[in-house]
């Protein structure tokens, strides 16, 4: 029983974890791409990794923190322009192919020895090089603080300050995206999602709108990478991989594409469930006869598989997600 409570607490802790916030932001960016504009970005992890590198490297080289954020955003913008300009004239599927391969290219460049001096190569960029300037921003006093069962240090990697910052950023990005998408500008994006030729026939420059959406969502993805990297380290394999991209997709589709709060709710539910599943299975495998069938090392793999299955089931059975409007999809699923 005590064990079960521990697992529950640990899972509930994920609701406000910095990683959950990072994925919420990444999914908000992807929502702008896919949910509103219908762009198939299969490389959101590439945007995240680039943003993290931009942030980490600037600070490692001694740049000020505002510049680090600016460079992270600029990295996302440039990446989006590079990918979007040649492909957005073409049919939608091409963007998917290009983004998935470009994200891989970023990861391989990151782990190569080419720019090892800055990126740290395959082992990545350790947090100690860039965390101090971030922690210096903290306005919290020294010490620890406990909120019910959740106790963290005030300032540090896995701290209250990181949480406040991460969720503050979620709120900012959310308000920004809500403001721009409820406007006539957002209506044009939705029109493009439905049928870009129809929108073109009404005299709107579809290419320009698609590029704007790709750039904004990409810049938001880069910011998500920063939030993800702050409490951890920047490692190309864990952050820039396809798994990361598919987690972001799962988060978005779980919460509901083209909804305002979908990405946030999706991220919270996803990580709570993911943590519950893994810690639960690990406990079972350690303490009960289940251990004879599933060893603790297999838990991670099974967890990954279950995420894949969840994504498939979502797309098949509830493509509108939790917050999605059933009526809106009723006539468009098939």
């Amino acid at each position: 029983m005590e064990e079960f409570l521990r697992i529950l607490t640990q899972s509930a802790g994920e609701i406000l974890a910095p990683t959950t916030a990072a994925f919420a932001i990444a999914a908000i960016g992807l929502n702008l791409h896919f949910g509103y504009t219908g762009l198939l970005n299969m490389g959101q992890a590439g945007f995240m990794l680039l943003g993290a590198y931009g942030f980490g490297i600037t600070l490692t080289l001694g740049g000020p923190i505002w510049l680090a954020f600016l460079i992270a955003i600029a990295a996302g913008v440039v990446f989006a322009l590079l990918l979007g300009m040649p492909t957005l004239q073409l049919r939608g599927d091409y963007l998917a192919i290009v983004t998935i391969s470009a994200a891989e290219i970023v990861r391989w460049f990151g782990r190569s020895t080419l720019w090892q001096e800055w990126t740290g190569g395959a082992s990545g960029l350790q947090g100690r090089y860039y965390k101090d300037p971030f922690h210096a921003l903290s306005f919290l006093p020294e010490g620890r603080f406990a909120l019910g069962p959740f106790e963290y240090i005030n300032t540090g990697s896995d701290s209250w300050f990181t949480r406040i910052f991460a969720w503050g950023l979620v709120a900012l990005v959310l308000i920004f995206v809500w403001l721009i998408t409820r406007s006539p500008w957002g209506r044009v994006l939705k029109g493009i999602r439905e049928d870009e030729d129809a929108v073109r026939a009404l005299g709107k420059s579809v290419y320009s709108y698609k590029l704007q959406a790709l750039v904004l969502g990409g810049a938001i993805g880069a910011l998500a990478g920063v939030v993800y990297a702050i409490p951890l380290a920047i490692s190309p394999d864990s952050m820039g991989g396809r798994t990361m991209t598919f987690f972001v997709w799962t988060v978005l589709l779980l919460g509901g594409a083209a909804t305002v709060f979908g990405p946030v709710l999706g991220s919270m539910i996803f990580f709570t469930a993911y943590m519950f599943m893994r810690t639960g299975m690990r406990a079972l495998s350690e303490d009960t006869a289940v251990g004879n069938v599933i060893s603790t090392t297999q838990v991670e793999y099974i967890g990954g598989m279950l995420v894949g299955i969840t994504l498939m089931c979502l797309v098949i059975f509830r493509p509108q997600g939790i917050l999605g409007n059933k009526k809106e999809l009723a006539f468009n699923v098939r």
Binding site: F176, L179, I180, S183, P184, W185, G186, R187, V188, K190, G191, R193, E194, D195, D197, A198, V199, A201, L202, G203, K204, Q212, L216, E328, L329, F331, N332
Partner: peptide, 28 residues
């Protein structure tokens, strides 16, 4: 080419010309 997941009225409003709100910088 009806824009299915927009309402009929939104379909119409989308067609209006020179809407300042369709500019990203003014949209918010």
């Amino acid at each position: 080419k009806a824009l299915g997941r927009l309402t009929v009225l939104q379909n119409m409003l989308l067609a209006s010309r020179d809407n300042p709100g369709e500019n990203l910088w003014l949209s918010w």
